[in-house]
Amino acid sequence: MTEHHEEHHTVSYRFNTIIWGILLCLTAVTVIAAQFDFGFLNVVVALTIATVKAGLVILFFMHLKYEKPLFKIIVFITFFLLAIAIGFTFFDIGYRY
């Protein structure tokens, strides 16, 4: 069926630029954080910051925040399944290495 009128949410220049600014700040944060040694938490800190950045890109640049719930659900499922794939593999290698 053809759509006759779809809601197009336009993100303003201003808002896009704010997101860009935050992303640059977070990049600086992650570089600075790497100068400190948190032990095994190093990777956790780095990946957390990366995930916040990724979240901003996905929600705003990729527009997911303004999409139908279906889109949000399937994005979540995809990353959830990837997490299972990596996580369950650690049932093996976590006890072997």
């Binding site: 896009n16 992303l23 640049f61």
Partner: peptide, 23 residues
Amino acid sequence: GTNTVVLISSSWFMALAISALQQ
């Protein structure tokens, strides 16, 4: 790090481009 800034900025430009066309 430079490449990271480069790609983030390219995403910014791309998002602006779509915004521009929509307007």
